[in-house]
Write a protein that binds this DNA or RNA. Structure first.
Lengths: 149, 149
DNA sequence: TTCAGTGCAAAAACTTTGCAGGAGG
DNA sequence: CCTCCTGCAAAGTTTTTGCACTGAA
């Protein structure tokens, strides 16, 4: 299924002297299968409900590792919880978030890479990533109702 | 001291039918005096240590109001806590965050407003704001040490 | 064999909520 | 005088930590 991602993760773990454990690959599997953005606890609950017995601590720890090796991206849309999304076979993109219903849309804008590079250089940073979120109100008719962010 | 901001806040409260209470202006005062970005709880602790007796709930509530009327901006730098910063007499700006020591630098880039406008229009959103954060490593020599984000 | 990784539960950090009393309009 | 706001503490949410045990190398 996610053979390429699994291989990439395995090599990363090896290189960084982290142990290769079945739990870690189980988390990877669930993470890549998740549609859209997810929180660590959400993933943990989903795994539990599928009768996995991976612990909460392991899920949190593994997601951190997966973000370190760029298989996942860490996001934060202003709800004080960390969200992740799969990077696998995806291009860089930015987010538009509806402040009423929580709908998240994506867009790409090549110019942003240039801005990142120039700002980092000017201020003496080595950039490792960025997040660009636009907040607003979407055109969805029954928008107010579904507070399902 | 912050006469103009106080007046603006007063008018906002009136317009929105919120009551005008001394506690709210006390929070405003501390918020505008705060150097840089701060969390709600940080401000509460600071006020307590200055023997203010405004409650935690009131601080959280008032900061929300101050963000609604644009005297403060709400930020989130990926630490799962809401941060605020004074907007008063400040131009729009973006942030560069050091992932080691938490140093935050600012920069401006007029092009970003254009990108925001175009993306919102294309996806049918009415934009109410944006956040653009670049993460990276700063050039500070003793950077690893001070984890004082 | 060794120690990083795991499961579990408890603690921590930040925020929200419920309630009773008090003050703004 | 009617409620909105306040203070307080308790509860809620998400994440981290401590500890003893297990299993990868």
């Amino acid at each position: 299924m996610h053979a390429a991602a699994i291989e990439e993760f395995r090599q990363y773990l090896k290189k960084e002297n982290h142990r290769i454990t079945p739990e870690r690959f189980e988390v990877l599997d669930y993470a890549l299968d998740y549609e859209g953005h997810f929180g660590a606890d959400e993933l943990y609950v989903k795994m539990k409900s599928n009768s996995s017995n991976v612990s909460r601590a392991t899920v949190y720890n593994t997601l951190e590792l997966l973000a370190s090796c760029d298989l996942l991206s860490k996001r934060n849309f202003g709800e004080n919880k960390t969200r992740y999304e799969s990077n696998f076979n995806r291009n860089s993109h930015e987010h538009l978030i509806c402040i009423n219903c929580g709908t998240i849309k994506e867009f790409s804008e090549p110019q942003i890479e240039v801005i990142v590079r120039e700002a980092a250089e000017k201020l003496g940073f080595v950039s490792t990533g960025h997040s660009f979120n636009i907040f607003g109100k979407c055109s969805n008719t029954n928008c107010k109702q579904n507070k399902n962010v």
